[in-house]
Amino acid sequence: MTPDRVPFTPLEERIDRWAQRRTSTLATAGGMRRARLVELVVFGLKQAWACVFGAVMLVLLVTARVLYPDDAPLARADALVLAAVAVQVAMLALRLESLREMGVIALFHLVGTAMEVFKTAVGSWAYETDGLLRIGEVPLYTGFMYAAVGSYMVRVMRLFDLRFTRYPPLLATAALAAAIYANFFTHHYLPDARWVLLAAMLLLYGRCAMSLRVHRRAPWRRMPVIAAFLGVAGLLWVAENVGTAAGAWIYPHQRAGWELVPASKFVSWLLLMMVSVVLVTLVHRPRRPERAQ
């Protein structure tokens, strides 16, 4: 293994080798269009695999709301905590996630839970009040929702061998991430700086491009990092609508009945992407493209 090669889990290695064999066979036979189609399919498969922890959490939230008995001896929120722990243990035991990645995922837990405790205390949103496995108003399964974001981020970094052109200085990204995280707390008492912070993020990452490949012999593809931020933030906003519709938590405007989560939350997720990226760089430092690109 070359020094800069990011290791795959066993399942990811099998997917990658299948993609290499299939595209190589099609390209040799003159089927370049079909080879590109396989590349697109593998891209989708790897994206789905990167989302696996988040998808399982979403299924658990919806299933608990629809099927779990309200009068069960074990509270629904506590059952969700135990199920989330079981999923995380299984992923480690089956070598679907590495111990190194677990470090940054645990950091997502801490960062997310701290914000949840504060936000529920000031009434930004609310959870069911049953269950024992909680901190204040916050059931402990909420930390796993933030961990799902961390799991996705560290996986795409390695699954697509991401490289970055004109990546901003790490000190600057860390300072901006800290300011964004602080604003989630301080805007309740001071003027909301989210639009200033969003402008700073666009300036910082505006020239940054991301190179990726769907398998290790595939050609490199490029896209603006900001476009990736927008795409992931959009998916998180959709997942948030599913979560609130399932009653996992509710916003004040949803107390009389479910309504769509406001678009302002999309901006919040976009800013949280900045914090997420900085946390992930603790495990996977941004690398420059190879000269051959």
Rank of each mutant, 00 (worst) to 15 (best):
F185R: 07
A182T: 05
G243A: 15
A175P: 10
A193K: 14
L162M: 03
F184I: 04
Y152Q: 04
P191N: 06
L198E: 11
A193C: 11
R207N: 15
W237M: 04
H215Q: 02
L162Y: 02
V196Q: 15
R216T: 09
L197R: 04
W195P: 09
F229T: 01
M157F: 14
V156R: 07
W220V: 08
A182R: 09
A218T: 01
I226E: 00
L159P: 10
R163Q: 04
R207G: 05
A200M: 12
A193S: 13
L236T: 12
H215V: 02
D161S: 11
A239D: 09
P169K: 05
M201P: 06
M210V: 15
P224G: 01
R217F: 11
A233W: 05
F184V: 01
M201T: 14
R217Y: 08
H187C: 12
P169E: 01
A218G: 01
L176T: 07
A182F: 06
R194G: 13
R217K: 15
N241Q: 07
M153G: 08
I180N: 04
M153A: 06
H215G: 00
L198Y: 09
D192K: 04
L198A: 14
A233D: 00
M210T: 12
V154S: 01
V242P: 08
A199H: 12
W237C: 06
S211N: 15
R213E: 05
G243Y: 09
T165Q: 15
N183V: 07
T186S: 14
F164Q: 02
L204W: 05
F160Y: 08
H188G: 08
L204N: 07
R221D: 06
L236Q: 03
M210R: 11
L198C: 06
V156G: 08
M201K: 12
M157C: 14
A193F: 12
L176D: 07
A179L: 06
E240H: 02
P191Q: 05
F184D: 03
L230I: 10
C208I: 00
